[in-house]
């Protein structure tokens, strides 16, 4: 049985519906990310789980208990905010111990628990400092410790890494994942950063215009996007208009070049797609003209034009390898299995 169930959740603000019939079941200890652009409704769903927004319709169940109408302070949920939201008048230790104090945990038990949490986040010696004496990354780790200290049933993370710089973001997201796995706490993580979602989630819910477009493992989402939106939003995708020559065998024609997919296709026209790392320059294939080369460190990115549309190819950086120059005419190909056929 699922630990957290969001059943037909809907939310409207006035006449504007921001969440449409949202359904999700999360297992105990699972790490689920809500991924989507700004305004897609991901934070609204999270806030409904936290109790800061009341669903217009639907039900929220945690560990078998219907919490839909419970106040936020009755839900036993830990939340970490983008802006840290540490209490500025309290020290780090007091911040971490705040939830325990509210819950009436005796001082003798609070101290060791606070110390345990500070150890967990790697800041054992900073208990006496005030939030403004910490860096952004340290503040967010304290916020995480504060949320975890009262042993919440569910941990909610609302874009916790957005305000941090790139390097700290990567190290903190790994730390969040480690802690989550160590404690086995059910977690929902809201982000608009696909790399973040792909790297630390057990499952991802890609949201678009208040709807869960696709729910699946990071690999499912990246390799088998269910909608055009998911395909476009998660990673970079090259699209090709293709004419189906033989629907049964999956023989299609792209810019005059034949491709055999060996899978049944609908008759007429389809949209084929390939990731930049799947496309390669080959002796035969789709005719293209190189329009630019970018050096991105570990990767070199080639830009090419196919039938007037721009496509992108990524190749690992191999020092000494000669790359085609802009203006060169080449052929592009991809392994059969890596071609995606996008739904209409």
């Amino acid at each position: 049985m699922s630990f957290l169930v969001l059943d037909h959740l809907q939310k409207s603000f006035g006449t504007t519906k921001v969440v449409h019939d949202f359904n999700l079941s999360v297992d105990k200890g699972e790490f689920v990310s809500f991924l989507g652009p700004s305004g897609c409704g991901k934070t609204t769903v999270l806030r409904m789980v936290a109790g800061f927004e009341t669903p217009s319709e639907g039900q929220i169940v945690i560990d078998g208990q219907d919490v839909t109408r419970l106040r936020p302070n009755q839900r036993q949920i830990g939340m970490v905010f983008q802006s840290y939201a540490l209490f500025p008048n309290l020290t780090v230790a007091e911040n971490v111990g705040f939830g325990l104090k509210v819950a009436g945990v005796p001082r003798a038990e609070r101290g060791p628990r606070v110390a345990e949490m500070l150890d967990l986040i790697g800041l054992p010696d900073l208990g006496g400092r005030y939030p403004w004496q910490l860096s952004g990354g340290q503040q967010q780790r304290v916020a995480l410790a504060r949320a975890l200290a009262p042993r919440p049933r569910v941990l909610l993370l609302d874009e916790p890494l957005s305000a941090l710089d790139a390097k700290i973001r990567v190290s903190l997201r790994n730390q969040i994942r480690e802690i989550q796995q160590q404690l086995g706490i059910t977690t929902i993580f809201v982000t608009h950063d696909q790399e973040e979602a792909l790297s630390i989630s057990d499952r991802i819910v890609v949201m678009h215009k208040g709807i869960a477009d696709q729910t699946g493992t990071p690999s499912d989402i990246y390799n088998s996007p269910a909608t055009h939106f998911v395909a476009g939003f998660v990673g970079t995708l090259n699209r090709f208009e293709a004419e189906v020559v033989d629907a049964a065998s999956g023989h299609v024609r792209v810019a005059g070049a034949g491709i055999l997919l060996e899978r049944p296709l609908p008759p007429g026209k389809v949209v084929l797609a390939a990731r930049p790392e799947s496309l390669q320059i080959a002796p035969e294939g789709i005719p293209a003209e190189i329009t630019g080369v970018e050096f991105l460190g570990s990767v070199q990115r080639l830009r090419a034009r196919v039938d007037g549309a721009e496509v992108v190819l990524d190749r690992f950086n191999a020092p000494g390898e000669e790359l085609p120059r802009p203006g060169a005419r080449v052929h592009l190909a991809a392994a059969r299995a890596s071609w995606l056929v996008l739904p209409e």
Partner: peptide, 29 residues
């Protein structure tokens, strides 16, 4: 000068009620 909403929601998620939020967090700040 305070992010009143986030502070309030953080305190609520930690189980605090209105009296504690205003008396212990908002007023001192």
């Amino acid at each position: 000068t305070l992010d009143v909403r986030s502070l309030t929601e953080a305190a609520q998620s930690l189980g605090a009620g209105w009296v504690r939020i205003i008396g212990r967090l908002i007023l001192p700040n």
